[in-house]
């Protein structure tokens, strides 16, 4: 099961990069989101899976596709000139971030717990998510809320000529 979802995710992501057509690339991204949602389910976290589908594939990608359709640019323009340095910088950044992520995951306490623990991980549900957010991470939550609000106000201010 894990392999299936992981493959879906990776194939979706790769297809998105290789795809010249913007809309098809967007749909490949939706496929990736579904793979990620499946991975969340494997982690016995159906809430995250559901939210992944509702928020990312249900709202954000729809809006992105909507905008692409509105702009009517279905075909990607070819790059004006190829710059090898971009490719090298990209590859090295991916390597650095990948190593960093690997390091964090391998060093995390939860992973060590999985190895030892014989008990199954308690499934996540909405009640627990709420408790986590509003009890342990309240400050971060509020800050994110403020950030999003300011981003929204900024977007409105930028797009609307006469306020």
């Amino acid at each position: 099961m894990f392999l299936v979802f992981a493959l879906i995710t990776i194939i979706g992501a790769l297809a998105m990069f290789r795809q010249k057509n913007v809309i098809v690339a967007g749909l490949c991204m939706v496929l990736t989101f579904f793979g990620v949602a499946g991975l969340f389910l494997m982690l016995s976290n159906p809430v995250a899976a559901a939210l992944q589908i509702i928020v990312y594939s249900g709202a954000i990608m729809v809006l992105v596709l909507f905008t692409i359709m509105l702009l009517n640019s279905h075909e990607e323009e070819p790059a004006i000139q190829a710059r090898p340095i971009q490719r090298w910088v990209g590859a090295s950044l991916i390597a650095v971030f990948g190593a960093f992520a690997f390091y964090i995951v391998m060093g995390s306490k939860a992973l060590a717990d999985i190895d030892k623990a014989s008990r199954p991980i308690a499934g996540m549900n909405l009640v627990r998510v709420g408790e986590e957010i509003f009890r342990h991470y309240l400050l971060g939550f509020e800050i994110i809320g403020l950030l999003l609000l300011s981003a929204m106000v900024g977007a409105v201010a930028l797009t609307k000529k006469e306020l």
Binding site: I23, I54, L65
Partner: peptide
């Protein structure tokens, strides 16, 4: 007790847009 509950139909409803979008495009 699958802790997906009512989120499931909401998620499915959100995905239902794709049929229309893909058909249209």
């Amino acid at each position: 007790g699958n802790s997906m509950g009512m989120l499931f139909p909401l998620a499915i409803g959100a995905v239902a847009v794709y049929g229309i979008l893909v058909a249209a495009w």
